[in-house]
Computed example of a mutant assay.
Amino acid sequence: MEENNIRKYAQLMKELGLTGLEITEDGNKIRLERSEGVKVVEAPPAVHEIQKAKGDTPKTDKDLIEVASPMVGVLYLSFKEGEKPFVKEGDSVKKGDVLCIIEAMKLMNEITAEQDGVIAEVCAGNGEVVDYGRVLFKIRRNEA
């Protein structure tokens, strides 16, 4: 496999927020992995631009943070099926608390809170396939 192809795959992983990728090409197999921590981002600007293009006007609330999916994968709201969810509406969360897990390419990625607050809304269901940029949670910031 050529170095240029490996670099292209590494860039694709970064763009899609993947932590691992396995490729078989011409009988050769390569596995790329990133150990970089997954970071939760506020809803990317692209999501807001799509909403504006559709004519939807997103409700703005300066104290509300949207936690968006940093990757495509299957959302899990609890560690195991039937167990208590990591968080539910009304729960207080601290920076670093696990909100959910997204399974992407058989890798489990913990999605954590980037700041303290209260879960205002859980926007996606357990076992649901989520796309990059999909809002998963809305967190109301704690009053300063």
Rank of each mutant, 00 (worst) to 15 (best):
P44M: 06
P44F: 13
P45C: 02
P45D: 09
A46Y: 15
V47K: 10
V47P: 03
H48N: 09
E49C: 00
E49I: 01
I50D: 06
Q51P: 00
Q51A: 14
K52A: 08
A53W: 14
K54Q: 12
G55N: 10
G55F: 13
D56T: 08
D56K: 05
T57S: 09
P58V: 08
K59L: 07
K59T: 11
K59R: 13
K59Y: 14
T60F: 13
D61K: 04
K62L: 02
K62W: 03
D63S: 13
D63W: 06
D63K: 11
L64V: 12
L64P: 07
I65S: 09
I65D: 15
V67M: 08
V67T: 05
A68P: 05
A68H: 09
S69I: 00
S69E: 08
S69C: 02
P70C: 03
P70S: 05
M71K: 10
V72S: 10
G73Y: 14
G73A: 07
G73W: 13
V74R: 15
V74F: 12
V74P: 00
L75G: 05
L75R: 08
L75V: 03
Y76I: 00
S78G: 10
S78N: 08
S78I: 03
S78D: 07
F79T: 03
K80E: 15
E81Y: 07
E81A: 10
G82I: 06
G82S: 04
E83G: 01
K84W: 07
K84L: 07
K84E: 15
K84R: 12
K84D: 14
P85T: 09
P85H: 15
P85I: 04
F86K: 03
V87M: 09
V87Y: 15
K88R: 04
E89P: 02
E89C: 03
E89N: 04
G90R: 06
G90M: 06
G90T: 04
D91P: 05
D91R: 01
D91C: 03
S92H: 15
S92N: 13
S92W: 07
V93P: 06
K94A: 10
K94C: 00
G96F: 11
G96V: 04
D97C: 06
D97W: 11
L99V: 05
L99F: 14
L99C: 04
C100Q: 08
C100S: 03
I101E: 04
I102P: 07
I102S: 02
M105T: 09
M105Q: 11
M105I: 10
K106A: 06
K106V: 02
K106Y: 13
L107N: 15
L107I: 14
L107R: 11
M108L: 11
E110Q: 11
I111E: 06
I111V: 11
T112P: 01
A113H: 12
A113I: 05
A113Q: 10
A113K: 10
E114M: 11
E114C: 02
Q115V: 00
G117V: 03
V118L: 07
V118H: 10
